[in-house]
């Protein structure tokens, strides 16, 4: 019993940030170069591991999902419908294990943005943020993108309101504008995704938009941490299933002093982490479960990362001062 207590103490004193750095590095290598070792963990991952990158060790669910959404409705109740459900179930099964920590710990595009943030720190540039009203407005964009990446493929396979069906050049529209498609293959020396496709108006629009978004991501995340994540439709899709996650982030509002350390630390800029005193489950739609809020919270047991109901990492005063001391002297 005592040894469990000691173990907990050691864990709570540790720097989650460093642990996260190595997990991110490992995941990045696995998902981008896994193919070299003939590793492939599947194509239903709830994260941006890109199928366009040849040596990928696992791939994003959204590509297949968009393909499936183009299924004509008449075929939905046959074998193809079952395939869609199996795909979704696989996605959810992967997702449930780590919940939104897929974003904070595994997503290669997220990792890349974190590396750009480290560069920003080295260059001594101040991090930018949004004011609350702007944040609220921008944070809805991801739902629009999610709706579009379902509706556009549907309009390929089906006719809406008697309108003509969309051409197949509109297929996988989100992948076409996703900066993961353009950037991640670069790490295996593949520059072909940087091209603009002039073969049709649809492809021209989407690939040009894709390149513009890529540029925005690189510049944006140099100033605003995790710039792209606020708009990510994967994060919106996650949020639908977030309550089923085994990994949880909880808050005990009674212990919160509203000092705002957590909000300051939050790369996503989620104000509710500091101001919400009611919710026990504090995983908001933009949360990536990086755990930075837990690290900077000086109140014992106020913020906790739990697997089911077992706390695995929690805020403690002792841990807070240990970490700040390392930071102040390091």
């Amino acid at each position: 019993m005592n040894s469990l207590k000691d173990l907990r103490r050691v864990v709570n004193h540790a720097s989650l940030g460093r642990f996260r750095f190595y997990v991110q590095l490992f995941s990045f290598v696995l998902l981008i170069y896994g193919g070299y070792l003939a590793i492939n963990v599947g194509n239903q991952l709830p994260t941006f591991a890109c199928l366009y990158s040849d040596l990928h060790g696992g791939a994003c669910y959204l590509l297949g999902f968009q393909h499936q959404m183009a299924t004509p409705w008449s075929q939905l109740f046959g074998g193809r419908g079952l395939a869609i459900l199996i795909g979704l179930a696989t996605f959810v099964a992967f997702f449930v294990v780590f919940n939104k920590a897929w974003c904070g710990f595994i997503c290669p595009l997220g990792t890349l943005q974190d590396w750009l943030s480290s560069l920003r720190r080295k260059l001594n540039i101040r991090a930018a943020g949004y004011s609350e009203p702007v944040f609220q407005r921008l944070s809805k964009i991801k739902y629009v993108l999610l709706a579009l990446l379902i509706l556009i493929p549907m309009a390929i396979g089906n006719s809406f309101f008697g309108l003509p069906k969309l051409g197949h050049d509109w297929g996988v529209p989100f992948c076409m504008i996703c900066p993961g498609r353009t950037i991640l293959p670069l790490f295996t020396g593949d520059f072909s995704q940087l091209a603009i496709d002039f073969s049709s108006l649809a492809k021209l629009t989407l690939t040009a938009l894709g390149l513009a978004i890529t540029g925005l991501l690189i510049i944006g995340s140099l100033f605003k941490p995790r710039f792209f994540c606020l708009f990510c439709p994967m994060s919106a899709l996650h949020y639908i299933f977030s309550r089923t996650g085994l990994l949880r982030l909880t808050k005990n509002g009674a212990k919160c002093t509203r000092c705002g350390n957590c909000f300051r630390a939050c790369d996503m800029g989620i104000r509710a982490i500091a101001d919400d005193l009611e919710s026990k489950n504090i995983v908001k739609d933009d949360c990536m479960m990086c755990g930075k809020c837990i690290e900077v919270c000086p109140e014992d047991g106020c913020l906790q990362a739990k697997v089911l109901s077992l706390p695995v990492y929690e805020s403690t005063a002792e841990g807070f001062f240990k970490r700040m001391n390392r930071k102040n002297n390091g």
Binding site: R126, T257, R258, N261, A265, P298, F321
Partner: peptide, 26 residues
Amino acid sequence: LSDSVAYDQASLNDMVPAVADRYLKP
């Protein structure tokens, strides 16, 4: 002394607002 400063980046442009927050928010 109940509350403590936590900053992200050891530069003045992050530390000074972090210090300010400590004296108002809690």
